[in-house]
Amino acid sequence: MDLDYLLVLLLGSVTAAATLLIATVGLAVVYGLMGVVNLAHGEFLMFGAYTTLTVTRMGVPFVLAILVGVIITSLFGAIVEVLLIKPMYGRLLDTMLATWGLSLVLVQAAVLQFGTVTPGVGLPQWSISIGDFEMSTYLLLMVPAAAVIVAAIYLLFTRTSYGVMARASIQDRQMASAVGIETSWINTITFALGAGLAGLAGGLLLPAVPATPDMGLLFVIKAFLIVVSAGPAALSGTAATGGILASTTSVTANIWGSALGDLMFFVATIAILRLFPLGISHKWRIRL
């Protein structure tokens, strides 16, 4: 019984960390490789969830619907980048304000379009039992999913021309253009990629987190705190910080309830920022 409880607690932490990582990684890519903080990240996630939901309800298989959701959210991200982000390069706080405005517009648009309550995707809810406890199989699947996403991003940014050029651009924008890199295009692709990852998160999490206009809010607080305390190493920093923060929170939440879990998360972040004001990975010499 005790052992079962520990196992459930452990699995719970790992799935919580994996879920959070999936929801965060798009934000981390945009921040880490573009230097832009996208306050509409949560709404991109919501956008992806609704797109996936709509496509599923049209009869398309779920996995394919997720793919459609990713593509449409990426395209939407690219448009936002060109219209909103590009004119404000170098004005970080202005970009934040503008994306903040965008996030509210998107929430409101979703309320008008879909209402505040929406049906689920109707996937069968499998679960496995550990002793007296039951765990959702789908949530457990988020662990390998997170691993695949992280690995794919790593390969993208270390093995492809785009990836290497994108990393060069964020490290020294002027120098990147002085070796011939079109940093402006790179940024559009990066932002679209970040949006696509948010859309992927929205679609993937749909069976666990039903689509609502303010579903983004569930993730963004933690996502922002993770990304800021992670620092410049977009992937490893985020994974490490996300892992630490999510598991401490998950344990706290399991014992004392979710509100205290959230508070714990916030306090832990502040502790990290107090120790590493510019993020955990500020001094890491690492590729990504």
Partner: peptide, 26 residues
């Protein structure tokens, strides 16, 4: 071609990647 004062290599790219980035851009 440009080699700036102070070098400004991309510090968190490997040596190969520094070269690859420049080649790919062109």
């Amino acid at each position: 071609g440009y080699v700036p004062q102070g070098r400004f290599v991309f510090p968190r790219l490997t040596v190969s990647e520094n070269i690859a980035a420049a080649a790919a851009a062109n």
